[in-house]
Design a protein around this nucleic acid. Structure first.
Lengths: 103, 103
DNA sequence: AATATATATAAAGAATTTCTTATATAAAAG
DNA sequence: CTTTTATATAAGAAATTCTTTATATATATT
């Protein structure tokens, strides 16, 4: 059930096509943090933040990092950071993606 | 009512986050054509094709071109071609976009 | 012990997007 | 003059996405 490139691209674009998710990536780019702190900072309910983060993580746009410097003595918390992704899109790239496999 | 960069980016990403619209751009990149021909080629109803094209045109992702070589003697028809856009997106760019205006 | 921090998920409702059907117009070809 | 090519839009249905509310669990601080 290997997914084609076009489907994958559409999923990635959908994940990015949302102001909350973009602001999440921006915030985590400034400083990695965990879901709860991010939710509070952004004025979102935790379940909503969790849902958006889940979507971003699923597509590999953010990842869990193991912070060497534990912020406090408090233990279980997943710290998120943006993945080092780069998306470049122009008409030729789109044509290539749509035509994949036919090669 | 000038729209901020983040809103504009989200709109562009939404416009691109759809398989039909991506295939449209790909098809027009291979060869510019008008809406009716594109709809037939892609197996879409004309109203649906028109709707998607309208969205792409509104965001400047495709444009009407005036073809020097009229395909046939048939006159009124808008020929579409992808605009020469390039979207580059990575965590830093997203951070910049989210932070616009604060500069 | 109670409160704040922290995670996770499901269910229901709200909002948005997508798609079809219908309608209208007009010119060229057969 | 009927069919094919061509454009444009509106209304409603269908599907998807987004958001809230509720529930459950567990540790740390006060």
């Amino acid at each position: 059930m290997s997914e084609d490139e076009l489907t994958k691209l559409v999923k990635t674009l959908k994940a990015l096509a949302n102001p909350i998710r973009l602001r999440m990536i921006a915030s985590l780019a400034e400083e990695p943090k965990h879901a709860y702190a991010l939710a509070k900072e952004m004025g979102l309910s935790y379940p909503l933040a969790h849902l958006h983060l889940k979507g971003l993580r699923k597509l590999g746009l953010i990842e869990e990092i193991t912070p060497e410097t534990k912020t406090e003595g408090r233990p279980p918390s997943k710290t998120y950071s943006p993945s080092d992704f780069e998306l470049v899109l122009n008409p030729s790239k789109i044509l290539e993606t749509v035509k994949e496999g036919i090669v």
